[in-house]
Structure formats: C-alpha cells, structure tokens
Design a binder for these strands. Structure first.
Lengths: 340, 340
DNA sequence: CAAAAAAGCCAAAGCGCTTTGGAAGACTCT
DNA sequence: AGAGTCTTCCAAAGCGCTTTGGCTTTTTTG
C-alpha cells in the first residue's frame, strides 16, 4: 500500500493525502480525519527510502564506531547504549553504527554526512581539541558530544559530568581523613575526562598544600589487570600512597586484588574510592569491602544525549549549550582515616 | 556531483555511466575506463538514498535491540559488536540498531522488513522455539542466528558454540578429580545456551551414574551479585557441592567473593570452572586463583556472523547451514581433587 | 454586491538512482 | 549483398514520497 494507491482509493490527490498525514494546515479537518482513518485502517506506512530521498531526513542518529584489531570497545558503551535506546525507542529513532578504522574516522564522518545517512551524530570519549568535533562542526550536521573537548574557537553542545568536581571531592574527603599521599589510577589521559579527574585531585591536594607525586598517577586502559599492576607498582614503591582514587569499577577489582595479594587491607592500609558508571552487573556495594564511589549513571547520560539529539533534529534545541551534571560521592566502607 | 551531471560532462547517458560504474558487461571497456576515471577525479559517490529507493538494497545489517527500564544490555553484546564491526568496516557495511520494547519486538522486526531498512538481520540470545526466528524466517529477510533455537519445522542458519560439549567436558574433568556433588550457576534458563550447558553437565554426571541435585542448579541474570548469592545459598545448604560450574566470568567474581566470605578456599574446598567469553577487561588468569575456563571468543563470533550476513546478502551463501564451534577447556589453578 | 482574501485541493516537477526496451552501427555468415 | 548477430549506447519509465505553483470555491470585507 503506497501513497498513490491510498490517494486513489480516497479519490484525492497524493498531495492532499501527504499533507493530511504530515499535519500541514492547508487541508480540511474533515478530510484529514478521513485520510488518517483510511491510512490507519489499511496500515499505510510511508516508505522511508522514498521519504528520505525527497526530504533528506532519515530518522536515524549516527555513531562512528572505532574498530580495529587493537581496539576494544569498552563496556561503558553498552550502558550508554541502553539509555540511548530507551529514549530512541519511544521516538521511533534508529541508531546506525558505522564502523571505522580507529585511526581514520574522518573518512567515515565525511561519508555519512555527504550521503545524508543520518540526521545527527554523537561523539563520545572526546579528547582536547578533538578532530572529530572540529570536523563535525564544520560539516554542519547536528551533533552532541558526550563528554567535553577543549581548546576550540567555537562552542558546541555537550553533555558531560563534573569529573573534576567529583574527583576533587573524593580527594578532599581522603585528605580530611588524614591522608597525605594520594594516588590516582586513571584512564587514558589523552581523553578529557581523565584530564579533568586528575585536575580535580590536584586541586584538592593543592588546597591543602599537598601535591600529587609524579609516580602516583598512572594512565592506563581501564582493565582489571591494569588496575592490579598499577596498584602493585604504587604500593611496592618507597613512598606508597595511603589512598587511591580509581577511574573505574573494573580497575578497582584489580586494585582490591593487588592490595590483598600484598597482604594489606582496605581500608586499614589503603583507602579506595572509585568512579562508578553504574553497571547493573557489578555494584560497588558488593565488593568485599563496600566501595566508596563517585557515581553517575552513564545510562542516564545516554538517554539524555538521545533526547537532545532528537530535539536538535526537530529544531527544538539550538545553540551550543553545554551541560554538566553533578556527580554523587557515595561513602562506603572502603575509606578510613590514614594509618598512623 | 550527481549521476546526471557526470553523464552530461562525459557526453554519455546516465544509463551508460551507471552501468559502467556498476560493472555491467554491455559497455565498452574503453568507455568504462573513461567513466571510472572521471568519477574518481570528481569524487562522485552515488547517493545511497536514491540507490536504495531504486534497488531496495541498503548496505546495512540490522539488529533489534531489546530495551526498557527492566532490560539491561549485557556486556557480551559489546564484545560481539567489536567483532561484527571489524568485519563490517572492511566491507562498508553499517549496522542499524532498532530499539524495541523487549516485550514486543515483533512490531519492530516487521517494520524494518516492510520498510526495507536493512538487507539482513541477526538474532542473538535465542530461546527454544524463539518467535523472532520464526517471524524473521517467514518475513523472508536473510538472517543469521547467533546461538541456536530449537523445535522448528524448518531449518535456519546459525553460528553457535558447543555449549553442551563445553560444559560436559568441564563436568567430566571435575568428576574425574573425584567430585561427586557438582553445582551449576547458569544464566537465564529460558535461553538455549543455558539449556545446553545444563544438559552438558547432566550428561557428564549421568555417564558416571551421578545426577545434578535439583537445588544444585540455578538460573539467574549473569551479574556479580547473583553469582555471590547463588554461591552462598549453595555452600550454606546441607549437601554443599564441592565443585561449581559457572556460566560467566562476571558471576564467577561473585562466586569467588562468596567462597572467601564463607572462609572457604578455591580450589581447596570448592573447585570452580567458568565460561569465558574473552573480555579484554577481565581475564580468568588474573583471578586471585587463576580460573579454569571453557573459552570461546564472542568477538570472533561477531566477526563470523557479519561475514555470513554479508555472504547471504550478496547471494554467496544460501541454505540453512548451522555451524557449531568447539570450545576450549583451559585448566588453571581453580580446580583440584575433591576434598576428603 | 463586487472585490479581495482565505481555504482546500490538484497536477506535475522534483529527489538521484537503476533498469527496461529499443535502436544504431559494426560484424559475421551464407 | 542481404539477413542475422553482436556490441554499444540511449530515452524514458520507474522507485514512492514531498513540495511548488496554481486553480477553484468559499468566505470575508468595505
């Protein structure tokens, strides 16, 4: 059942039927009712391929997925996706993932924009002066950055969490508990979120006249194993920290294992605070010692990004508004006063 | 730059240019060269929207993503996606995720097929007599099932691992080590993979005249917490098992924690074997006691599914061939002889 | 009550590609 | 040389929708 048939069956022109269906004003309400009724009764659904050829609108949002043998998509992605999907579903939006060589995403961005494959895109895990952001900005497709980039001469729309504030507060708590030597086990410090977190820790330390030792901060891929290794290295060195801030729950697993392997205990010897993106399958309160966390649901962020993308597509949102969500600091058993 | 312009500039008809570009035989090789040359020089890329309206081909593969407040996409998905993306990238295929209410995926399947939104789909986490498989089969769109369904009067194409064999071998090893009371901490037993795994354990036990106690098998969502709870329940009961088979590494985290909380040890009091889908961020050799596993890379499966989908789209693969991959049994420190 | 404005509808021209049904010219064969 | 066959190309008809520009008919207005 296509438009032509429907129009013919109603003894109307395609024009009128199309307009009736799409809510244009220049059609009699009575007629509109007839049309919509018939459309529903016959299960008419406009062919999206045709519509998109005519309008350029696709009803899809895009994401360029970095892939390659050396690239691991991290599990945060799936949680984000959950939220995105939740919103997208209720608005009949689909998400198209365009896999790209991690080292050459530009080509793919250009392709999906030139081909009008999607109405909007989002960008995740941005770095300072991220080329993707600059590119997408000049290409002129609506977009939202999940996280923040920095150092552009233009503004853009983003949804981020207050990484700096979160880690500042976490560090401040540890300092108040008497800790003087803090360590930070961070994610890839080429990414903005990691930079902000480090800055948060440093600011808190500085406020008390302390500093973050050069070898007390490490930047690694966020795996359990890297959490373990980093912790061993930290705790086996001369001026071992008495408190650790850790950028992910998964790394925290490794931290806990390392501490145990060294015959130390949490929080007796080492206090630990980790960032919790809220995975349904791994919860900080279920660690052998319940974990203190800075918490922010990445799933909610996914839903919010979808919502904003939808708003941008339909013209409801404009401008370069950035929003920064506060992060909860949840104190559980893994922190205590510094050992004497 | 569109076809019309290109044709005009070459003083050829659109027909000829189109055919030259698409490799049809009825065009002079000399002409073809000229056309392809000009196309490249001017960076001509056929508009996919137009092409798809004309041909119905989209260059995309689809996946219906179950969503909803109660639905968690599990982290296996992202690994699978990694593999899928790896392959898709090298073949200029995109993946479109259509979020659907988990309780009504049919509507979405019908929509994406009716609208010709994708050339093929894959289905994951199938159950016996899975309605999605039946539906997609009648809708007539090329598809591959990742995993297996059962109980249809038709055959279909799937890529699965030998879950039954894997868990049979795992159980057999435990039995050979003298264990008599095994337990299985399984995933959702409405899904085929879980059924097969349970069957594997039962078969191994039966071969030695043993059985799997009714309360020695549990079916839960594969979270750390559920692994913990199940283990507590198992080990605190009267006839506690001396060996546990566990369907996921994430649950195994909980198993280990529970065993420790009870003051017991692995493998002294309890042997443990878990299934490993090969996550880059959590590896069995890095457990406090290195974990014995049944191992199969879900990422490779993703790549394979993509490969087969591509083959089906281009007509290279037909028929209902199912393939079943063997699973490695990797023995590490978490298994030992049964306690006296 | 005639003129102007508004309402309601339609035919047809895109959107950019593929594909059908020829047609013209070159080549082969008897 | 005439008939038949290839080879090579083209005009035009879709694919199914939106949108422009215009044409009636009805309503409003001075």
């Amino acid at each position: 059942m296509n438009l032509k048939q429907l129009a013919h069956m109603l003894a109307l022109s395609q024009t009128t039927v199309s307009r009736a269906l799409n809510g244009y004003p220049e059609v009699n309400e009575e007629t509109r009712r007839r049309v919509m009724d018939a459309a529903k009764r016959h299960g008419y659904r406009p062919n999206p391929s045709a519509r998109r050829l005519a309008t350029g609108k696709t009803g899809m949002i895009g994401y360029v997925l970095p892939t390659g043998a050396a690239v691991d998509i991290d599990p945060h992605f799936v949680e984000f996706l959950s939220g995105l999907g939740d919103y997208a579903r209720s608005h009949e939006l689909d998400l198209v993932l365009s896999p790209a060589d991690a080292d050459d995403q530009e080509t793919t961005y250009r392709r999906i924009v030139a081909n009008r494959q999607v109405d909007a895109v989002y960008i995740s895990s941005p770095r300072p002066a991220d080329r993707r952001v600059a590119l997408v900005n000049t290409l002129g497709i609506p977009f939202i950055v999940h996280g923040r980039s920095e150092g552009f001469d233009f503004d853009y729309a983003f949804t981020d969490i207050d990484n700096e504030g979160a880690f500042r507060e976490a560090a401040r708590l540890l300092i108040q508990l008497g800790h003087r030597r803090l360590a930070l086990i961070n994610g890839d410090d080429r990414e903005t979120f990691a930079i902000h977190r480090e800055r948060g820790v440093r600011r808190a330390l500085a406020a008390s006249g302390l500093t973050l030792g050069e070898h007390h901060v490490c930047s690694v891929d966020m795996t359990e194993e890297n959490g373990y290794r980093a912790t061993r290295r930290l705790l086996e060195a001369g001026d071992a920290p008495t408190a650790i801030a850790c950028s992910s729950l998964i790394m925290a697993l490794g931290v806990v294992r390392a501490v145990r392997d060294l015959g130390l205990s949490i929080p007796g010897d080492v206090s630990l605070i980790a960032h919790d993106d809220v995975f349904p399958w791994l919860r900080p309160e279920n660690f052998s010692v319940p974990l203190s966390t800075t918490r922010s649901s990445i799933r909610l962020a996914g839903a919010r990004v979808a919502e904003r993308l939808a708003a941008r597509i339909s013209g409801l949102e404009e401008g370069a508004r950035g929003e920064v969500w506060p992060v909860d600091l949840v104190v559980r058993g893994s922190v205590a006063g510094a050992p004497a």
